[in-house]
Design a protein around this nucleic acid. Sequence first.
DNA 1: GTCTATAAAATGATAGAC
DNA 2: GTCTATCATTTTATAGAC
Lengths: 215, 215
Amino acid sequence: MVYPSKLSRERVVSAALFLIREQGVDALGMRAVALRLAVRPSSLYKHVVDLAGLQSLLAEHAAGELLAAMDVAIARAPRSASVEAPKMPMLFMANEYLRFAREQPALYAMLTTQSSLMQTARSTASLSAAIPQEARAALWQRLLQVVGELTGAADDTDAAVALWAFLHGFITLERAGLFGSTGPKGGFARGVKAMAAGLRRPASGGHPAIDMPAS
Amino acid sequence: MVYPSKLSRERVVSAALFLIREQGVDALGMRAVALRLAVRPSSLYKHVVDLAGLQSLLAEHAAGELLAAMDVAIARAPRSASVEAPKMPMLFMANEYLRFAREQPALYAMLTTQSSLMQTARSTASLSAAIPQEARAALWQRLLQVVGELTGAADDTDAAVALWAFLHGFITLERAGLFGSTGPKGGFARGVKAMAAGLRRPASGGHPAIDMPAS
DNA sequence: GTCTATAAAATGATAGAC
DNA sequence: GTCTATCATTTTATAGAC
């Protein structure tokens, strides 16, 4: 062989991970990845379908990492006989979610940015590479389960959506620098506690209906 | 005059607003705006500093619109003697925030995307155009005020941050299509109610401290 | 204040030699 | 499986004529 193998799909993905970790999501590109591997851009196309395909692989990796981190954190939540006990897994999960997003902002961004690629769709052939969403589905299942422990309902979609929205929103605003110079202070803990307290009972029971304008 | 005036700053901004409304945020560019005005791209630079400068103008416009819409909604909140009364302005504000973001997604996006321009900074001269953030500051003040009515604390930054994070997060996730095919269902109303109930008392009073891992 | 013309720079992706 | 070479496209922004 004249040109010995330097690459593999793992090496390409790994290089892309280092790239976004150090330079941010916007730095991700075939050229930048190739440069980092000391390889010509065209060589990458033997291991990855597309730029969109590469992004899908990164998103799946991100989902797996986040899920693993969350599982560790949830397992560490103390289980006592206290009335506050059912809150614990949720609190630990929320804290880990924030920690992950703060420590690996670019990786976290891949998780949520990626779906906008469905609308980009310059190439039709790369759609097959965007299909595998196993890890992300598992992530959602874990969220549902932990929130279910809190509210007492098995498939409390609404409650899970509400908590997820808060977590993701806090991270997004913080990262965009929209909290101002003072910083978010205790806003995260405050929101998590409010959710823990306010989501306890499913919508059907509990408080009387509040007059709300139509959504 | 050989070349009669066709443009003004307002007309440029107006064209840009129509553009993002119909084609989305990513379609915003000097070329696209010029095309829409039947004018050469270079002509725009007589009325707008930069692309970044134009984006700043759009963001400021967006903040003004959102603030006005929120004020109308807040004014419509019923004021009764009920225990639930203090929640009302917040509920109405939250609903209007969602409605605005859904009806004018691109305009809402300008509000939050723009600050990332501080990091772009290809041109140093355009920084002066990014300074005016009056409307956005006013928006934050209104949020603080309404949340203050709810919790009873005058400058309850943490509570305002928590609510804002939920609102923005829900909108972001919904728009990214991350809620899946089932849709968010009642997740928004559920979250707002949880916040309304859980934020009632400032962090200092109320519930005993919950053991949380370090943030 | 608008125009023509052009600079300067990125990017993703492909064909074909080896 | 990597290489060279190149295409095709897009973009912001400026200089100078009118």
